[in-house]
C-alpha cells in the first residue's frame, strides 16, 4: 500500500497505542477482563496491522522470523519453568504458593504474573508466525478464480 498516506500515518499512530493496550491487558488482567492470551493476540494484531500496511518485509525486518520461533518456545518454557521451580522448592507442580511460603497469596501473585507472561509470549509468537506463514506464501490463483 505504497500510496495510502492516510493509512500509513494512522497506522504508525495506532501501532504504538495497540502495543500499549496489549501491555495494559497483560498486566491488568488481575483486575479486569484479560490476561496473557488476550494480550498476546492484541500484541500480534499490532504487528499484523503493521505488516498489512507497510508490507511483510518491513515487519519481518522489525521482528525476524527466527526470533519469533524462539519466542514461541520460550513462552512455553517459561510457563513450565515456573512449575518446575515449584517442584524444586518441594511443592507440587504449579503450586505458586511455594514462591513465598510465608504469605501464600503473594506467592500466587508472583506465579500468576510469570505464567501469564509465558502465555503472552507464546501466543504473540504463534500468531505472528502463523501470519508470516500465510502472508509469505505467493498466491497461486488461476485467472478464472477472480
Amino acid at each position: 500500500m505504497q500510496h495510502h498516506l492516510i493509512l500509513r500515518v494512522i497506522t504508525k499512530l495506532l501501532v504504538g497505542m495497540i502495543i500499549l493496550f496489549a501491555f495494559y491487558v497483560q498486566f491488568h488482567g488481575d483486575f479486569s477482563p484479560g490476561g496473557g492470551f488476550q494480550a498476546g493476540v492484541i500484541m500480534a494484531v499490532a504487528f499484523i496491522l503493521y505488516g498489512l500496511v507497510f508490507g511483510l518485509e518491513k515487519v519481518q525486518g522489525v521482528f525476524p522470523p527466527w526470533i519469533v520461533h524462539k519466542l514461541v518456545a520460550l513462552g512455553v518454557l517459561l510457563y513450565a519453568g515456573v512449575g518446575v521451580l515449584n517442584m524444586l522448592l518441594g511443592y507440587e507442580f504449579l503450586h505458586y504458593g511455594s514462591l513465598d511460603p510465608h504469605h501464600m497469596s503473594h506467592g500466587q501473585h508472583t506465579g500468576i504474573i510469570w505464567i501469564e507472561a509465558g502465555v503472552g509470549i507464546t501466543v504473540t509468537g504463534v500468531m505472528i508466525a502463523i501470519y508470516y506463514a500465510f502472508a509469505g506464501r505467493p498466491p497461486r490463483l488461476g485467472d478464472d478464480d477472480w
Binding site: H4, I6, L7, I10, L13, L14, M17
Partner: peptide, 16 residues
C-alpha cells in the same frame, strides 16, 4: 478518540 480516528480512516480506505 479511537473510533474517531479509525472510523473515518476505514471509511476512507473502503472508498479508496
Amino acid at each position: 478518540i479511537f473510533l474517531f480516528i479509525t472510523g473515518p480512516t476505514a471509511t476512507h480506505a473502503v472508498a479508496n
